[in-house]
Simulated scan of single mutants.
Amino acid sequence: MSETQTIVPVILSGGSGTRLWPMSRPERPKQLLALTAEETMLQLTAQRTPGGERFAAPIVVANAAHADEVEAQLSAVGMAPSALILEPVGRNTAPAIALAAIAAGGGAAPLLVMPSDHVIADVAAFHRAIEAALPLVAEGWLVTFGITPDAPETGYGWIKIAEEIAGGVHRVERFVEKPPIERAQAMLAEGGHAWNGGIFLFRADRYLEVLGRESGPMVDAAGAAMDGARREGVRVWPDADAFARSPSDSIDYAVMEKAGRVAVVPVSMGWSDLGSWDALHAISERDNGGNAHAGEVIAVDTAGCFVKTDGVRVALVGVKDLIVVASGNDVLILPRGRSQEVKKIIEALKKA
């Protein structure tokens, strides 16, 4: 692949982000929020691949309900997309990426697939990993980026790393689904494993070829949806009836676990998927008491707490290791370490 080969960023922005309730809601999910900087998660993602000789303008796949907000946020940071594909219905990541691959022309262009709501603190390390992968991508390999693990995480998929096949690039021996804690501890101790960060690099034609072989109805539905799409400026509305016929599956299950030539670039780049308030606390600056807070917060004799408010003042006295999040009329309070249980609140709210 030439030094000036242009990479097409594909930003997946269809998630609902309910694990960061009450700030993240279906109408304004976490990728549209400013959680770690002045910019939103979507803006930060787009800015990692600035347009020019190396990166083309991004293709963004988003929920149709968020079209105005996505376009406005990207415009505000000078990252207008070449296409804003507005999903009529959610069908998971594999069909969403198929829509983007077709929009990119379905040829040899390398697609860099990125979720819109991840943190990458060391963008230079990310770019080095991309450069390491490109020669193999040109040969038809599907590449994922393996995050250097620092804990026995059970909320992520893992990758067993095999032999090195090019500088910094290894063959994938196998993907491991989200493991029980004992298995995660064993993989961490053993070494030779990485977290599956959900970021991928491959040629558009190669992706469509493998997906077509493994799930023909998915590629057929995506193709028909794009053939029948309505277009207005950069916005693309795939045909709803055609896309609804697609099976729903993730890229991991539909493609990566089944393809023949799959490689991984292990990389330490300050990555987090911000999958919980605990995860945000872990990467936030803290005061001398170990508290991280944002908004109008008063903390007295308080330690190890994460407090965030976008409106009302929050005051804490004599407590420790709590997560407190206030947004609008809702306040979330729970012990640190249990923020994954926010899903129980979402379920209770749906029943109510």
Results as ranks from 00 to 15, higher is better:
Gly198Ser: 06
Ala64Asn: 00
Ala294Gln: 13
Ser2Asn: 14
Ser268Ile: 00
Pro110Met: 04
Pro179Gly: 11
Ser327Arg: 08
Gly270Gln: 12
Gly78Lys: 01
Gly15Tyr: 01
Ala166Leu: 03
Ala299Ser: 12
Val119His: 14
Gly318Met: 01
Ala56Trp: 08
Leu33Cys: 13
Ile59Met: 04
Met226Leu: 14
Gly105Thr: 07
Lys258Pro: 02
Gly52Ala: 03
Val113Glu: 06
Ala57His: 01
Arg286Trp: 05
Ala292Gly: 03
Glu87Ser: 10
Lys30Phe: 08
Glu39Lys: 13
Arg174Trp: 00
Glu232His: 11
Leu280Arg: 11
Met256Arg: 09
Val77Ala: 06
Ala151Leu: 06
Gln73Ala: 12
Leu349Ser: 07
Val234Met: 10
Phe145Glu: 01
Leu316Met: 09
Ala108His: 12
Pro179Met: 12
Asp301Gln: 13
Val123Ser: 11
Pro335Ser: 09
Ala254Thr: 01
Glu71Thr: 12
Gly289Asp: 10
Glu214Cys: 01
Ala263Thr: 06
Gly311Tyr: 09
Leu112Asp: 05
Asp301Ile: 01
Ile147Tyr: 07
Glu257Thr: 15
Ala151Asp: 05
Leu142Gln: 10
Gln340Val: 07
Lys160Gln: 11
Asn288Phe: 11
Ala348Phe: 08
Leu42His: 10
Glu285Phe: 05
Met269Ile: 07
Ala222Tyr: 08
Phe126Val: 04
Glu285Lys: 13
Ala294Thr: 12
Arg245Met: 03
Gly168Cys: 10
Arg91Pro: 02
Pro247Ala: 02
Ser250Leu: 10
Ala57Asn: 00
Val77Gln: 04
Ala151Trp: 11
Leu99Gln: 12
